[in-house]
């Protein structure tokens, strides 16, 4: 009988252990990671990470609603993983770690790379030029990237008749993507927010001690 008891205890422990190990332990280990003070590339000292605010936070909701993460991951893997290609491809300068994600609800790590990783997309397309590029790319992906399989997000833009002066934020579309004369394509607030999100999306803002390899 005592052997049965041992067996049963063993079984329960094995069974409960995945809960302890895969849900509870990470919860205890990682749930209380705090932001820390660090220096950015430009030499500015700031707390990192910081929660998104305003337009960028709304842009993240647009990103979620349209399932962007089903093609774009947001994680940079170690230089010892997968030939270190993530970093060599210039998708990031260091691997991403737990602390980079503490304000993300829900977290958008992603499991698929039909398109390139976006963890630090703001580093690649920065400033007003980057925003313009992103708008054009969202509206007409194949105009900017021939051969791309990304769907057009034209539904985030509005086509309207030009009255008086053309709008300042009208997209500069060319060729088959340009609207007929007298019309212009302008971003909706959703498109603006999404592009704002992409232009602040940077998980490598400061070097973190735990990300050193």
């Amino acid at each position: 009988m005592d052997r049965t008891v041992t067996l049963l205890l063993g079984i329960t422990l094995t069974f409960a252990s995945s809960w302890l190990g895969l849900v509870f332990a990470p919860y205890v280990q990682m749930n209380n990671v705090q932001p820390i003070k660090g220096t950015t590339d430009d030499g500015v000292e700031e707390m990192y990470p910081r929660p998104l605010e305003g337009e960028a936070a709304y842009g993240r909701e647009v990103y979620i609603a349209n399932g962007c993460m089903y093609c774009h991951s947001q994680q940079i893997r170690s230089e010892h993983f997968g030939n270190g290609a993530d970093i060599k491809r210039n998708w990031g300068v260091r691997r991403t770690v737990q602390r980079d994600y503490i304000y993300e609800k829900p977290i958008l790590l992603g499991t698929m790379r039909t398109g390139p990783d976006l963890a630090n997309v703001a580093r690649r397309w920065s400033g007003q030029g980057g925003k313009d590029w992103n708008h054009l790319h969202l509206y007409a992906p194949r105009m900017m990237m021939p051969g791309s399989l990304m769907p057009s997000f034209a539904f985030l833009y509005e086509k309207r008749r030009i009255t008086g002066e053309p709008s300042a934020d009208a997209l500069k579309l060319q060729g088959e993507w340009a609207p007929e004369p007298g019309y212009e394509i302008v971003p909706t607030p959703q498109a603006k927010a999404l592009v704002e999100y992409l232009s602040v999306l940077d998980h490598n803002r400061i070097m973190l001690p735990e990300a050193q390899e």
Binding site: M30, N31, Q98, I107, L109
Partner: peptide, 8 residues
């Protein structure tokens, strides 16, 4: 917080 969501 963060990555715990992914694990779960």
């Amino acid at each position: 917080t963060g990555v715990v969501q992914s694990a779960c």
